[in-house]
Amino acid sequence: MRRNPFVEAGLSAEIFDEQAVLRALMDLLYDEPTHRALADRRADYLRALALLPSAADAVRAALRRPQS
């Protein structure tokens, strides 16, 4: 899941790595720099989504492609 903009909009930790999970939870709850960084990542993700064509436009474009 590397380089996945959706995943990059949040924090992740291996579920069986108890220390990493606790550290991520504490950062989510109490760390202001983490809050700001995640807000920036969410904004980046939403900007990237806004650049995508709508589902209807994507279907129309696929239907217009010449058949091979």
Results as ranks from 00 to 15, higher is better:
D17A: 00
L52F: 00
E32A: 15
D57S: 07
R64W: 09
A9K: 00
P66K: 15
M26G: 15
A55C: 06
R3S: 12
Y45F: 14
L28A: 09
E14D: 11
V59N: 02
F6G: 07
A58Q: 08
L51H: 13
P53M: 01
Q67V: 14
R36D: 08
Q19K: 13
M1D: 08
R64P: 03
A58R: 07
L63S: 07
A39P: 06
A50L: 03
F6L: 12
I15Y: 07
N4L: 02
E14F: 15
F16C: 13
R2F: 11
R47I: 03
Q19G: 11
R60F: 01
D31Y: 12
A43I: 06
A20C: 08
A13L: 01
S54V: 10
L38R: 00
A43R: 14
L22A: 15
A56Y: 05
V59F: 11
F16T: 15
A9S: 09
R41V: 02
P66E: 13
A56S: 08
A13D: 00
P53N: 00
S68W: 09
D17G: 04
D57A: 06
D17M: 06
R60D: 12
R41W: 09
P5Q: 03
R36V: 13
A9L: 03
P53G: 03
R47P: 02
R41F: 01
R3G: 15
L51S: 11
A56I: 10
D44K: 13
D27N: 08
M26A: 15
D31M: 04
L29S: 10
R64S: 14
V59C: 03
S12A: 09
E32C: 05
A58D: 06
E8W: 02
Q67D: 14
P33T: 04
A43M: 13
G10I: 01
F6Y: 08
Y30T: 15
Q19W: 08
A37D: 01
D17L: 06
P5F: 00
L22R: 12
L29D: 07
R2N: 05
S68K: 12
A24D: 03
R2G: 06
Y45R: 09
R65T: 10
Q19D: 15
A56D: 10
P33D: 02
D40Q: 13
G10K: 07
A13Y: 01
L63N: 05
R42L: 06
D40S: 11
D17I: 05
R42N: 05
I15D: 10
R2M: 08
R64E: 14
S12G: 09
R65G: 05
A58K: 08
A48H: 06
R42H: 04
A55T: 05
P5E: 03
M26N: 14
Y30E: 14
R65N: 07
R64C: 11
F6W: 10
I15H: 08
G10V: 02
E18M: 12
L28G: 05
S68A: 14
Q67F: 06
E14N: 14
L49D: 06
L46D: 09
H35V: 03
L29F: 02
A56H: 11
E32V: 04
D40V: 08
M1A: 15
S54I: 09
L25W: 08
I15A: 15
F16W: 12
L51G: 09
A24E: 05
V59Y: 04
H35K: 13
E8L: 14
L29Q: 04
D44F: 12
D27S: 15
R23F: 09
A56P: 01
V7K: 05
R2H: 12
D17V: 05
E32N: 11
T34Y: 04
R65P: 00
